[in-house]
Amino acid sequence: MRITELFDNGQFVVTAEVGPPKGIDASHVVEEAKEYLSGITAVNVTDNQSSVMRMGSLPACVMLKNAGLTPILQLTCRDRNRIALQSELLGAAALGIDNILCLTGDHTKMGDHPGAKPVFDLDSVSLLHTVCQLEKGVDLGGNELVGEAPKFAKGAVVSPCSDSVDAQLAKMERKVMAGAEYFQTQAVFDSEKFIQFMEKAKQFGKPVQLGVIIPKSAGMAKFMNKNVAGVHVPQEMIDALAADKERAKAGITGVEIAAKIIKECRPYCQGVHIMALGWEAKVPQLLELAGI
């Protein structure tokens, strides 16, 4: 099932994400997803997230699919050139993976192989364009595909609370031009900023899923403020997390914060994307509290 059909039906789409393991045993990832994420629409599978080498996204997607979930294949341009990316897309389609999320990817220097050659032959925009080409039965080199063409729900990302919001909107527009059908956002902690962003983004007419992270502690919030692009946790949330450490540790404060943001933003967006970062178990609780 392509999640674009749900957007088309006016459904509020909930997704979450999981990361494949650095190893060959992905059973716990699948088990956790089955237990906590079965109730949601689809599950993103990250692609060597943060440039840290892990099992590929595609095999993990297949495992999740076999477990009855709807996986979204994340595809970055950092590790593969246009040949490998297209080949991966054909493979995904052949294995029944029809939801994708196209990203540029973090730079190699951010990860655990800083000496690796950063590829960036294509970027998120040209990757989306390439997917559209494949859907037309032609590859990027202009050669015809044999047999049926693949068909994907093509997602992309945008960073609404970035301090470069104009550049982000410009890029978003290009992604739409290139064929993006839905967007997932970077984590939002400032509803007002998100609502302002959506005022401008709605002109593109594409569904946007609010990105949500459940903050685990004041330390984590400060770390994100310092190191994660496009993420800014307001001081009062940090104070709330710091006020009662036990409560924060138990996840109660974080879930409350995340639920509040979802509630505030819900009228302005078409879905929510939860980056649980290991707290997959709290997703059902969060959704309940947010009234979804």
Partner: peptide, 10 residues
């Protein structure tokens, strides 16, 4: 005899 060469792109 030289070790396997791996380029450093960083």
């Amino acid at each position: 005899a030289q070790p396997v060469q791996v380029r450093d792109w960083s």
